[in-house]
Simulated scan of single mutants.
Amino acid sequence: MVDTVEASANKLRVFVKDTLLGEDISIEVNMIVLAVGMTPSATSDLNLSYRLGKGLPELKYEFSDSHFICFPYETRRTGIYAAGTLRAPMDIASCIEDAQGAMLKAIQCIEATKRGESVHPRSGDKSYPDLFMDRCTDCKRCTEECPFGMYDETEKGTPLSNPSRCRRCGICLGSCPERVINFADYSINSVSAMIKAVEVPDEFEEKPR
């Protein structure tokens, strides 16, 4: 993204912002040709039934947040994939190639769902969060911290899980102060046991508890 342009002797110096790496770059050129500005389409028309909003989460420049955990097509809405100028400025040829990649991801999603498997990030995982609601205090930590909108709420504010949106990231497991949430293949207790099993030399005062 072009930031500023300065005249330098008989040439021009362009200062650009690499939005992917977050770095400032300076380039010396003879001529500059600026493309027509692009404005991403609004996604609120999708009218999604998420407590986090009807559209897709957006990045700083209003482009769809489709780089979560470094996967270019995936959005924070399971089963919805962004492509083309919805997620970044690009020309027609790049849009076509980008759409093909998003289409393949959508096919993988459909096939995995038919088998009852996780789509991402842990492909093949069949476990979902298991909530022991007897200990739940309705603190809403899980509903607020889940980046994928997996949890809705009842009229009383009690968490209501929607497994079809789950990515098995485990954020809700770590956010719950009452240890209400666990998975079939890993839990707070299993992770704690693995940490405690690590041998720490006696000279270290801080040891796993």
Rank of each mutant, 00 (worst) to 15 (best):
Met1Asp: 15
Val5Leu: 14
Val5Glu: 14
Glu6Leu: 12
Glu6Ile: 10
Glu6Asp: 09
Asn10Ile: 01
Lys11Gln: 15
Leu12Pro: 08
Arg13Met: 12
Arg13Cys: 07
Val14Gln: 08
Val14Tyr: 02
Lys17Ser: 14
Asp18Arg: 06
Asp18Lys: 04
Leu20Trp: 09
Glu23Asp: 13
Asp24Leu: 13
Asp24Phe: 14
Ile27Gln: 03
Glu28Ile: 10
Asn30Gly: 15
Asn30Gln: 12
Met31Asp: 13
Ile32Asp: 00
Val33Trp: 06
Leu34Gly: 06
Val36Arg: 08
Pro40Met: 01
Pro40Phe: 06
Ser41Asp: 12
Leu46Val: 00
Asn47Leu: 12
Leu48Met: 11
Leu48Tyr: 08
Leu48Cys: 09
Tyr50Trp: 09
Leu52Glu: 01
Gly55Met: 00
Leu56Pro: 04
Pro57Asn: 02
Lys60Glu: 09
Glu62Asn: 15
Phe63Glu: 13
Asp65Ile: 00
Ser66Met: 02
Phe68Lys: 03
Ile69Trp: 08
Pro72Thr: 07
Tyr73Met: 06
Tyr73Asp: 06
Glu74Arg: 05
Thr75Leu: 04
Ile80Arg: 01
Tyr81His: 05
Tyr81Phe: 15
Ala82Arg: 01
Ala82Glu: 01
Ala82Ile: 01
Ala82Pro: 02
Gly84Phe: 07
Arg87Glu: 07
Ala88Met: 12
Ala88Arg: 13
Asp91Phe: 09
Ala93Gln: 09
Cys95Leu: 09
Ile96Trp: 03
Gly101Phe: 05
Gly101Asp: 08
Ala102Gly: 02
Ala102Cys: 02
Ala102Ile: 02
Met103Ala: 15
Met103Trp: 07
Lys105Tyr: 12
Cys109Arg: 04
Ala112Gln: 14
Thr113Leu: 15
Lys114Asp: 13
Arg115Lys: 15
Arg115Leu: 15
Arg115His: 13
Gly116Gln: 10
Glu117Ser: 12
Glu117Phe: 14
Ser118Thr: 13
Val119Gln: 11
His120Tyr: 15
His120Pro: 00
Pro121Val: 12
Gly124His: 13
Ser127His: 13
Ser127Phe: 13
Tyr128Gly: 04
Pro129Ile: 06
Leu131Ala: 05
Leu131Glu: 06
Met133Val: 06
Met133Ser: 04
Asp134Thr: 08
Arg135Lys: 08
Thr137Gln: 03
Asp138Gly: 00
Asp138Ala: 14
Cys139Pro: 06
Arg141Val: 05
Cys142Ser: 03
Thr143Ile: 09
Thr143His: 10
Glu145Asn: 09
Pro147Leu: 07
Pro147Tyr: 02
Phe148Gly: 05
Gly149Cys: 05
Met150Ile: 09
Met150Val: 14
Met150His: 02
Glu153Gln: 09
Glu153Asn: 03
Glu153Ile: 10
Thr154Trp: 03
Glu155Met: 07
Gly157Glu: 05
Gly157Lys: 02
Gly157Asn: 00
Thr158Ala: 07
Ser161Ala: 06
Asn162Asp: 02
Asn162Trp: 03
Asn162Ala: 04
Ser164Gln: 15
Cys166Gly: 01
Arg167Leu: 07
Arg167Cys: 02
Cys176Ile: 04
Cys176Lys: 03
Cys176Thr: 04
Val180Arg: 00
Val180Phe: 01
Ile181Pro: 01
Ile181Gln: 03
Asp185Ile: 08
Asp185Val: 02
Ser187Pro: 08
Ile188Ser: 01
Ser192Leu: 03
Ala193Asn: 05
Met194Glu: 12
Met194Cys: 03
Glu199Cys: 07
Val200Cys: 09
Pro201Gln: 10
Asp202Glu: 15
Glu206Phe: 09
Lys207Thr: 12
Arg209His: 07
Arg209Trp: 07
